[in-house]
């Protein structure tokens, strides 16, 4: 077991202004004892990867409700990889049709959460997945 606090970046890529979900999830993760940094709105993929690096986070959670996920999500992943952050736990949520979920989950996204997801489920997932990863890597993520 590693009881080091989990550090999470919750980010809003693109021009989408819908931040109710992102902020609610950020608050819930914080209530579960995680260190949560929320980027605010209108972030480019570069800005998000930059913040993830500076804040040395374990988890990056993206939220998008504008339909631009198939363009923006992979670009965020590429920017993370470019900075040597390919091993962060990358998750997302929003209005994402089932086919796109399948595609993104085969492109480096660990899990995507759709509308109506219980936020406790997201918190539990992050805690369990981080515990598994830390056990596998001996504490490093």
């Amino acid at each position: 077991m590693n009881d080091q606090k989990i550090r999470v970046l919750v980010a809003k890529p693109g021009l989408d202004g819908h931040d109710r979900g992102a902020k609610t999830v950020a608050s819930v993760l914080r209530d579960h004892g995680m260190e949560v940094i929320y980027t605010g709105l209108h972030q480019t993929p570069e800005m998000i990867a930059e913040a993830a690096q500076q804040e040395d986070v374990d988890v990056v959670g993206l939220s998008i409700l504008s339909g631009a996920h198939m363009s923006l999500f992979p670009r965020v992943r590429d920017e993370l990889v470019k900075r040597g952050l390919g091993d962060v736990l990358l998750i997302g949520g929003g209005i994402i049709p089932g086919d796109d979920v399948t595609k993104l989950e085969s492109q480096g996204f660990a899990k995507l959460f759709g509308p109506g997801t219980n936020t406790e489920e997201i918190a539990k997932y992050v805690i369990a997945e981080m515990a598994r990863r830390r056990a596998a890597t001996g504490g490093r993520r």
């Binding site: 693109g14 021009l15 198939m70 923006l72």
Partner: peptide, 18 residues
């Protein structure tokens, strides 16, 4: 669309995918 709502033309860098 979002680029229009934010005052960007369709060919602006921020409009990619939107």
């Amino acid at each position: 669309d979002f680029p229009t709502l934010m005052g960007y033309d369709s060919d602006h860098e921020y409009a990619r995918g939107e």
